[in-house]
Amino acid sequence: MSTPARFARAAVVTVVAAGALVGSAAWLVPDAGAATDPVTVLERARTATVREDFSGTVEVSWKVDGRWHAERTPVSATGGTVQVGAGTRQAEGRGHDRWVAGVSGWRAGWDEAADAPAPAPDRHWKLSVRPGPQIAGRATDVVTARDRATGKPRLKEFTDRTTGVLMRRTVLGPDGRPVRRVGFVEVSKLGGSRSTPPTTPARRAADAARTPAAVRSVPDSVDAPGAVGDRYRLVSRYRRADGTVQLYYSDGLFGVSVFEREGTLDRASLTRGDPVDVSGADAVGYETAGGTVVVWDHDGVVRTVVSDLPAADLADFARGFDDRHDAAGGWLRAVGDYLLGPFGWR
């Protein structure tokens, strides 16, 4: 065989081999465009509103006694500013500033940065990612978080494959069935060129002094365990204008706020809810658009916990919070109380 012929045959073999390699790779990976690292997908979704512009309609749905409730609201992100709602029910966020509009106009709602990172999402959850369904006309990847003990799925986050924007968050109950969902039902813009952020009216910052203030310690009269059970870690402490202490716990995927205020619970003032047993205390539970709520009092402190956790999980959290409090008679706590008690803070 002549030299040119040998070169020609080698070239053909090379092209065929390369083609076979690419073809086999595409066969081995079901969707070559799908993400493969769930932690990366979640982090990309968490910060997408800073990078991407979008607008559309989000539906918030939650299940009460087996029946779904749903509300829709317009949502947009422009130049890093997120706006939700319309009229007298609006909220806006930029950086770590938040404003809320009500019937009396805008007011500052939050201006504190997070002072500690939340636990990594795969610390307590077994995560996986695979191609998801189309949502509002967009291709998605879905990250599923499973309970490491039971293997049951407890959370699904669907993200836009192109931009990484969170398209839907579905919370699943202990039986693996959905109990709460927040997600786009319509997208009019997603990705593309970025716009200039809207101007924030000066009036929105007028009462910034009323926003919660981050604190390093809480009054001795309330409890603030560094962890609840082996899952939730205390991330931040805040003191609200009315004296209420807000503690924020996270397990990496679910956040829980604990509001504590000295006094006795005026049960007559509460809307009728579901009875919940929290370590022997008669607590009251609610399912709202914004999350599950449990209210009770313990040792002269009224506690309200809020989260998008399912009711059973939030009740477990509440019991864990109280149990930890009751079992905290160890020497370390005693020493802390002795040293810091005279200052009224610990």
Binding site: V60, A77, T288, G291
Partner: peptide, 10 residues
């Protein structure tokens, strides 16, 4: 977006 949306509907 998903965490603030409930404020607008509640």
């Amino acid at each position: 977006a998903s965490t603030l949306a409930p404020i607008a509907v509640s």
